[in-house]
């Protein structure tokens, strides 16, 4: 037990995401903002955006590591991407006081979103 905990913390990621929680996070636009830009098999289709590609079937196209990287380092794939880098606060300007110093999603929430996106397999 004494040795198990540090071992668990070393494994990346340290916690497994929960797909049901991930769905709620993606559908909560005031939290994640995903649906401002993306559409997909989610609540309220008329309130979904088309700034990014639709997320239908994304779990069949990208594995969990690739999905995580698209969320946390979107600029790696397109330096001019409008998509925010989830999990980061560095390099942000004029953030409103209610959000200052906090990333949009915590690392645990990002894992939940990755777990949920992985379940989207129907194109």
């Amino acid at each position: 037990m004494k040795y198990l905990l540090p071992l668990l913390l070393l494994a990346a990621p340290a916690w497994a995401g929960d797909a049901a929680r991930g769905r709620r996070i993606v559908e909560d636009r005031a939290l994640s903002a995903c649906l401002l830009c993306h559409a997909g098999p989610f609540l309220a289709p008329h309130l979904q955006g088309n700034i990014g590609p639709p997320l239908n079937g994304i779990g069949a196209r990208l594995g969990p590591d690739e999905l995580r990287l698209r969320l946390t380092e979107p600029a790696r794939f397109n330096p001019d991407t409008p998509m925010p880098a989830y999990g980061h606060v560095d390099g942000l300007h004029r953030v409103g006081p209610a959000w200052r110093g906090r990333p949009i999603l915590t690392p645990a929430q990002i894992e939940d979103v990755v777990a949920f996106l992985s379940t989207l397999r129907t194109p």
Binding site: A33, L35, I51, L92, G96
Partner: peptide, 23 residues
């Protein structure tokens, strides 16, 4: 580029006018 979402006015109103943001 400003705010927690890290977007500029120009990114929406110059580069993405005509697209849908949410509804």
């Amino acid at each position: 580029r400003i705010g927690q979402l890290n977007l500029s006015c120009a990114q929406c109103h110059e580069e993405r006018a005509g697209l849908r943001l949410s509804g």
